[in-house]
Design a protein around this nucleic acid. Structure first.
Length: 201
DNA sequence: ACAAGGATTCACT
DNA sequence: GTGAATCCTTGTA
């Protein structure tokens, strides 16, 4: 990732998703504790993409996806879980990158406290678990991760590692589009499951 | 107004 | 591998 984050986020979502593998997400809790995580799995969603919440235009829920890049789009999944996305591409375009899994770099005790009974590899594995482990919910909708605040995105280390790509998990439309990206060999990466509703390839 | 269907997770067989 | 939990958003009438 050579571009500064602010410029990187203007790129097409699939490029952003690939570049954010290896980036760091810093969580500052209100009690002063801090957690640093390394993102190991992402998915891209674009406006011109039938699997995206933004595909059918602006709605109350998806409004933030159409806003400026760097904001957090947080939505509830299956009535139970929170999922977080980093909005990308220029304002007015509905695109974002779903953060699916991460590895705890610092503050593991804080994360374990929110994910009792889980092994370290499970702490931030899966988009719902990622939000649970970092304490992210709808209060964080619209948070700007490019500035200091409860959540901040930081560039990846300079170390280059292999990023794999493949189809997105669980989407019923555009199920064969390879817009999921992950760090090769990372144990926190989700198992792939095709949506039962997706037409077969 | 109503019904369908999730960008999921976990327990269970 | 299968199914339940759970509720909000969205499409359709």
């Amino acid at each position: 990732m050579s571009l500064p984050l602010r410029e990187l986020l203007l790129e097409p979502a699939h490029r952003v998703a690939e570049a954010l593998v290896g980036a760091r997400l810093e969580r500052a809790h209100t009690d002063g504790t801090r957690v640093v995580a390394e993102i190991v799995e992402t998915e891209a969603y674009r406006q011109d993409d039938p699997a995206s919440h933004s595909a059918r235009g602006r709605t109350l829920r998806t409004e933030v996806m159409f806003g400026p890049p760097g904001r957090l789009y947080v939505y509830r999944s299956h009535g139970l879980h929170w999922c977080m996305n980093v909005v990308c591409e220029e304002a007015g375009v509905g695109a974002a990158v779903l953060l699916r899994a991460a590895r705890v770099v610092d503050g593991v005790e804080e994360v374990r406290h929110r994910r009792p009974g889980r092994s370290d590899r499970q702490l931030l594995r899966g988009p719902g678990n990622l939000c649970a482990g970092l304490g992210v919910d709808d209060r964080h909708r619209g948070v700007d991760v490019l500035v200091d605040g409860p959540l901040r995105l930081a560039a990846a280390s300079t170390e280059r590692r292999l990023v794999q790509r493949g189809p997105r998990v669980g989407v019923s439309r555009a199920a064969d589009l390879a817009w999921r990206f992950w760090l090769d060999g990372a144990p926190e990466v989700s198992a792939y499951r095709r949506s039962p509703r997706a037409p077969r390839a």
